[in-house]
Design a protein around this nucleic acid. Structure first.
Lengths: 348, 348
DNA sequence: CTGAAAGCGCTTACAG
DNA sequence: CTGAAAGCGCTTACAG
């Protein structure tokens, strides 16, 4: 663990080399208008000659500023999350912020560890995709340190916080109405964790759309699970093996939808033909799949970018009220439910 | 920008509260054996009561240690890269290292900016997926700061450095030999940037396999490009519109292969039937695609994890010789070249 | 326009 | 087993 550290060039040495005081060097370094141009040039030239590299840690310690931002998400394997990361990352780069990355793998414990680390680093703020079961204490801990948080996609209801996400209920309605228009009457809803905020919204949308069409909710075709492909594999099989299987399935997200369609093929069924599928998120894989996945888009890159904007606003004006931005989802019609059910020869 | 910073609890205050000196508090905090158990307990209890949070930046400044590691990759949209990140991330978590993330989008300029930021943060090391055209000076800059680097997948030939990657030449041979076995004689190689290390290896493998089969290289069906889906779209169209199109295509990576297969469908052709396709990387999308993509696996998670191990070894023993780990690739046969060419009715 | 001095919150010889 | 003191590399009133 121990190694002989190289002795870095310090600003002190730069100052001596340039024949100015440490104070002047410090101001010159940051191009302060209080320092004359020739002096600035001299300092800059010394910096180059000596190969000086600014020590941000030391500067932060003194100034109590910090250009570092924490980003915590659930899983890097889901493109929906990485798309959010991309959007946030680009925006953060524009603001010259450094990103500390953390992945919870949906574990609250890991999440608390990551939060601790970020607090110890005195980040300016944390953008957080909360793990299921997150207590408001976790957020309070961050806020007590004077560090700002904005939640993405998932939210907590028992504490005030900045938030950006999508209107999940409307998304659910969009998905199910589309299926209804295609003539489906028996529509399952599979995957996702009921304690999570987005699940509740999508389920509400699912119910509302069905009710509006005069259809009773059948709890036996609402199946909870995780958010990954394996969940799609398992649940589609379970739901299709029911005595009275659905003709259409609304999947909690695209990853589950793809898992479901893959499994359908294993079962000798053709997704989009034998069973209609709608997803949620709009990940690239859904576009590449055959049949191309009909889904509800969440605009992940915009969510990521806006999360950064909200955080930045909060950093600049800490005392304004918390804001919650809720984006409108959009139905992306592709191929995975392209047949009207009454046109299918083998159905009623 | 300016905000009133909260006054955090300091170790000084903890010490006073516990009735010990700052020195004792500092040692107790880290569970030093030189401090008696009762004292440690007292300090820990004060920490809890006061809500003290360790300031890692201040500690690093003094001790010149740093548990932060930089990770620079090309693009978060390519699952191959994020898989590497996942592997590295998990390993870094085990070592209790904090990750600073950077994305170059294949730009050397951005890369140098990111490197500067990480140097300013005095990270312990940088794991780097170099952008095309990277000069050895960029690496030298890092090393001069006494910061360790390990390159992933792509490497530089004019400077010594730690490295982990795959045997690209063997990968190329595996891919092309498979196509040859299926009866193909006219095999294109599309996508990728020739100045990049992996491209050169794969191309060498491509040539060797063809030569071993007594086939002349035809430069007109070797087309360079980028590493994204659009490149696949464009190049497959160009190569198929040639007077004498290939019957099989070896794609530089899976993303290109998927772009190519998508475009093939647009052209009314069936990938895997009308044209055989082999990719490289083995990303999840390739498994979900129809036809399932035959490809050469690179084990990205292992690459990421091993990169961390190499870095850790270097941090612990800075003076050992640089090591280059080259993994063996593996051919994953699926569906995208499942027909023997002489069985196809519409071919010679 | 420039400089001397204090201090950010820790760690670490050194002394007892 | 514990403490007083110096110092890591910066920034920032304050004074001139």
């Amino acid at each position: 663990m121990k190694r002989s550290k190289p002795n870095h060039v310090t600003l002190q040495q730069v100052a001596k080399h340039a024949g100015v005081s440490l104070t002047t060097a410090s101001f010159a370094l940051r191009g302060s208008p209080n320092i004359s141009q020739p002096t600035i040039k001299r300092v800059l030239s010394s910096i180059k000659q000596l190969g000086y590299v600014y020590d941000r840690g030391a500067a932060n310690l003194r100034s109590k500023d910090n250009s570092t931002v924490g980003f915590i998400l659930a899983d890097l394997a889901n493109p929906f999350y990485t798309e959010i990361l991309i959007g946030a990352h680009q925006e953060l780069n524009k603001l010259k912020k450094t990103v500390i990355l953390g992945t919870t793998f949906e574990s609250c414990e890991t999440q608390d560890l990551l939060i601790s680390t970020m607090l110890e680093h005195r980040v300016a703020g944390i953008i957080l995709f909360v793990a299921p079961g997150t207590q408001s204490e976790s957020l309070a801990r961050i806020k007590n340190m004077g560090i700002h948080v904005v939640l993405i996609s998932r939210r907590l209801t028992d504490i005030q916080h900045d938030y950006i996400g999508i209107d999940n209920e409307t998304g659910g309605i969009l998905a199910v109405e589309h299926l209804l228009k295609k003539g489906h009457r028996r529509i399952a809803f599979i995957g996702g964790i009921p304690e999570m905020y987005p699940w509740q919204g999508r389920r509400r949308g699912y119910e509302k759309a069905l009710h509006a069409a005069g259809i009773e909710i059948d709890e036996s075709i609402i199946m909870e699970g995780m958010c990954d492909r394996e969940c799609g594999n398992e649940l589609i099989r379970r739901v299709m093996n029911l005595p009275n299987p659905p003709t259409a399935v609304f999947c909690f997200n695209d990853t589950i939808a793809i898992g479901a369609m893959l499994e359908l093929r294993e079962m000798g069924l053709t997704p989009g033909h034998d069973v209609a599928i709608v997803g949620f998120d709009d990940i690239p894989e859904g576009r590449a799949f055959s049949p191309k996945l009909t889904t509800v888009s969440e605009f992940p890159r915009i969510i990521g970018a806006k999360a950064v904007n909200i955080l930045q606003t909060r950093i600049e004006t800490p005392d304004i009220e918390t804001q919650a931005i809720v984006l409108d989802p959009e139905l992306i019609v592709r191929e995975s439910c392209s047949y009207k059910i009454d046109l299918l020869p083998h159905k009623g």
